[in-house]
């Protein structure tokens, strides 16, 4: 799993196709799920920022889960949430510092990004390549403080 999301907010036009793709990719019994990706403004008037789970190295969601329902998928690298195990205590939702574990009221499930099993629908459908999922060599870019 050397692929990562590459997000370029400056290219995002706010069309929310990624959100729609996510909903449909996670449909259950013909019902779309709640999107696990969010197009937000981030306090900027002229910017759209697609936000989703960072699949953290030391993930707070997994640490907070007392029944170990959240574990790393060795193939995709995603922190996967096992719906059969989840007892909906909402700990992970409260613990994730990025708000990327959430509750789907329609499906009555706690959900988070699962990288669609290794081929994220959101990135595939983004028309402007503001959101890509591709192999990258990670080179840190640190803003001057």
């Amino acid at each position: 799993m050397n692929s990562r999301f590459v997000v370029k907010p400056e290219l995002c036009i706010g069309c929310r196709t990624c959100e729609l793709a996510c909903s449909f990719a996670h449909a259950k019994n013909g019902r779309p799920g709640r999107s696990r990706i969010f197009v937000l403004g981030g306090g900027f008037k002229d910017l759209f920022v697609p936000v989703t789970c960072l699949q953290c190295e030391e993930a707070a969601c997994a640490k907070s889960c007392l029944v170990n329902a959240i574990t790393r998928n060795p193939e995709t690298g995603a922190m996967d949430l096992d719906h059969d195990k989840c007892v909906r205590c909402m700990a992970c939702i409260a613990a994730c510092p990025f708000g990327c574990s959430l509750f789907d009221e329609q499906q009555e499930l706690v959900i988070k990004c699962d990288l669609c099993g290794g081929d994220p629908a959101c990135a595939k459908f983004c028309p402007t390549k503001a959101l890509e999922y591709k192999p990258v060599t990670v080179r840190a870019l640190r803003p001057a403080i």
Binding site: P9, V49, A94, F98, G99
Partner: peptide, 28 residues
């Protein structure tokens, strides 16, 4: 589980806004 208690005083929606704002500032 060694999770800072402050994490629990911000809900998921507000946490996502914080992330978007950080990413926005880096982009700019």
């Amino acid at each position: 589980r060694d999770i800072p208690e402050e994490y629990f005083k911000v809900n998921d929606e507000a946490h996502r806004d914080e992330l978007a704002s950080t990413m926005g500032r880096i982009t700019r």
